[in-house]
């Protein structure tokens, strides 16, 4: 929990060693509404910070998910192919998108911590 960091576009990354798990926040899934499809990148893809990492489709519209940090895709959440609604029901857990091997951990310093992100979201309403 303590090491989950956020972007202003409502992506999060949770770091464990040199790997980071990436998803979208509860606020983001609520704004999107019912998720019906998630397009995930190929394993091995190299992403720069802010590159498009995935696309989330709700009933109404598509939204891009940008990676908060640079790295190589080492795992994707295959469960989302069977049940994309996991993004809605468990955005910070089962609804994760991809796992990256971080290439530049100093990028984490650009991101918001939990408390800062909460304040940021509160300011949006």
């Amino acid at each position: 929990m303590a090491d989950r960091k956020y972007t202003e576009d409502h992506e999060w990354v949770e770091v464990d060693g040199d790997a980071g798990v990436i998803g979208i926040s509860d606020y983001a899934q609520e704004q999107l509404g019912d998720v019906v499809f998630v397009e995930l990148p190929d394993i091995g893809k190299i992403l720069d910070q802010r590159d498009e990492a995935a696309v989330v489709e709700s009933v109404k519209a598509a939204a891009e998910v940008y990676t908060p940090v640079s790295g190589e895709v080492i795992e994707v959440n295959e469960e989302l192919n069977n049940d994309p609604s996991l993004v809605n029901t468990d955005a910070f857990g089962e609804g994760w998108f991809i796992k990256l091997r971080l290439s530049d951990p100093t990028e984490l310093e650009d991101l918001m911590d939990e408390a800062t992100y909460k304040t940021f979201v509160a300011g949006l309403n």
């Binding site: 509404g33 019912d34 019906v36 709700s58 009933v59 109404k60």
Partner: peptide
């Protein structure tokens, strides 16, 4: 109103 808290799928 584009949707209520139940969401589009539930409303549909």
């Amino acid at each position: 109103p584009v949707q209520y808290p139940g969401g589009i799928m539930t409303e549909h």
